[in-house]
Every structure is written in C-alpha cells, then in structure tokens.
C-alpha cells in the first residue's frame, strides 16, 4: 500500500488516540484520586455532545455551544458527585459498578425523555470544514487536525495543572496517600468534587468535539467508555502518562488494524472472505492487545500504584 495512505492512517490513529485520551484522563484521575470506578463516565460524553448540539442550534455559534457543552458536563458531573458518587468512595468496587451502571440507565433514558429518540444535528463550523493538502498529496480534514491540536493542548495543560499548580499538588498527594492530605487540612470533599467535575468536563469536551463528526444520539458514550477503560487498564490505572500512552497505542492499533488486516488476509484468501475475517479480527484486536499486556504486566504499563 502507498505511503500516503499510511501517513493518513497514522494521523487518523493519533486523532482517535487524542480523543480517547480526553475520556481516559478523567477516568484515570477519578480512579487515582478517589479510588472510584465510574461506568457512567460515558454519560458525561453524551451530555457534552447534547448540550453542544442544543446550544449551537439555538445560538448558531459552535464555539458558544462547545463552551456550553463543557460547562454542562462539568456541572452535571459535580452534581452527580455531590448527590451520588461521594456516598460510594468507601464502598467496594462492586457497589460502585452497580451504582454507576444505574446512572447510565438514568442518563440515557433521561436524555431520551428530554431530547426525544431522534439523533441531534451537530456539524463542524464552516471555518473548520474542508481539508488541507499535506506533502505527498494527502488531503486531510482540517477538523481532524484541529482535534489533534486540542488533544495535544489539553495534554500539556493537564501536565502543567498537575505538576505546577496547588490543585495538582493536592491531586498528586491524593494519589499517593489519601490519609495524608486529609491530615494536612486540605478540604477533601471540595477537592473530590473538583476532580470529578474536571474529569466530566474533559469527557464533555470529547463528546462535543467528536459529536460534530459522529452521530449525537442516546448511548453514544458506551462504545467509547469501553475503549477508554481498555486505555487506562493498558496504561496503568491512575496514571495520566499511562492514559496518554495507552490512548495513542489503542488509537493506532485500532485504526491500522482495521485497514491493514483485511489487506493482509487478502494476500492468501478470496477478497470477500478476507474482508470479513479481517474486519472480525480487527474488532477483537485491541482486546487481544489488552489481554497480552495484562498477562505480562498485570498492573498495566505505567502503574501509579506500584
């Protein structure tokens, strides 16, 4: 296959990876700081997309909508933390799984009740449509390049937040020793609400950005939630660095697998069968990757708790 196709697919893999990182960083922060496993993280993704779609439709401005989406997701996150999540911190993981599973049902059907069963309209703004021509005559959508840019910006911002600010210091303290920061007089419940809202806001940002490329509909958060879990487990739960690495790895492996596995099988199978077998194997690929990594590194690649 041609080099231009490969370059384009690498970009696609990175773009998928950066969006996964936005989801996974929140999940992994919440786990690292509060020890909470949150299945409802995909719901904030959905909330972000719906809010962005609704506000964009009424104001006509994608940027205003995007801001509204992030704020809505963060607010809903804070609210959920205050009402439900904080009762779960010292519960077993099992209770956390059940409660957040229930939250998925509530959010999905609640959204359907408010917005109806039909998918919502959300398109990239006109100034972000179109494509740029890369070397080798590869055309690449501006919007996707922008997604990569946002992903990198957020990664850097998160790095500074965690390593340079007071809040980041507390988060790091919380990750390594929860009892300690309580003893130091940090207002833990405020910190927890803040961290949870931050994670929800990042998920909302991902939902809003990706929503413009995909279908804004009920249940849109679930496939990406499962992928985000794969990411943080591969990277090591609680580790932002691991989330970044895992996200890029999953994004690249998934994208390249989808393209090159069918092509590979075609070298020794009839085309129609090869496409089917290749697509089937591509669907399983990241789970196989995850099983292999965990078989050798049971705590992921960059475990924060080791």
């Amino acid at each position: 296959m041609s080099v231009t196709l490969l370059i384009e697919q690498l970009l696609n893999g990175v773009q998928l990876g950066t969006m996964l990182f936005l989801m996974a960083s929140g999940l992994t922060l919440v786990f690292g700081v509060m020890g909470l496993i949150n299945l409802a993280h995909g719901s904030f993704y959905m909330v972000g997309a719906y809010a962005t779609a609704a506000v964009t439709a009424s104001t006509g401005s994608f940027l205003v909508g995007l801001g509204a989406g992030i704020i809505a997701a963060a607010l809903v996150g804070a609210l959920v933390e205050l009402i439900v999540i904080r009762r779960l911190y010292h519960r077993p993981h099992l209770d956390q799984v059940l409660a957040t599973f229930a939250l998925i049902l509530i959010f999905s059907e609640g959204t359907r009740w408010i917005f109806g069963s039909s998918p919502m309209r959300l398109s990239p703004p006109s100034w972000l449509t179109g494509f740029v021509t890369l070397p080798g005559d590869t055309r690449y959508p501006i919007y996707r390049l922008m997604l990569i840019g946002v992903g990198i910006t957020v990664s850097i911002a998160l790095y500074f937040l965690i390593s340079k600010t007071r809040l980041g210091m507390r988060i790091r303290a919380g990750e390594s020793d929860r009892e300690m920061i309580g003893a130091l007089g940090v207002n833990i419940s405020k910190l927890y609400t803040l961290v949870f809202a931050l994670g929800a806001g990042l998920a909302g940002l991902a939902g809003a950005l990706v929503g413009a490329l995909q279908s804004v509909q009920v249940g849109m958060g679930e496939p990406v939630l499962i992928l985000a879990f794969v990411v943080i487990v591969i990277g090591g739960i609680g580790s932002i660095k691991g989330a970044l690495f895992g996200a890029l790895l999953v994004g690249l492996v998934d994208t390249l697998g989808r393209v090159y596995l069918p092509i590979f099988f075609r070298t020794f199978m009839p085309p129609s069968e090869a496409s089917g077998v290749g697509a089937a194997l591509a669907a399983m690929l990241i789970y196989i990757l995850m099983a292999i990594i965990l078989a050798f590194k049971p705590k992921g690649l960059f475990s924060a708790h080791d």
Binding site: F31, I37, H93, V97, I226, F229, V230, V233, I237, G276, A279, A280, A283, M284, Y287, I288, M290, A291, L294, A295, P298, K299, G300
Partner: peptide, 30 residues
C-alpha cells in the same frame, strides 16, 4: 489463568476484555 494474575479493577477489566473478544467474534462469524 491469565486474569487471576491481576487484581482489583484490572481483574474487572480483563474479564470484560475477554468477554468482548468473544462477543465480537460471535457477532461477525457468519
């Protein structure tokens, strides 16, 4: 044998991953 090498959330997630593998396989095997 593979999953029990892990603990906690890792165990939850690796069992999920194996189930997803089988799910996708059944879904696309004609």
């Amino acid at each position: 044998a593979i999953s029990l090498r892990t603990t906690g959330v890792y165990f939850i997630m690796i069992t999920l991953a194996f189930a997803q593998m089988i799910y996708y396989f059944a879904n696309s095997w004609p």
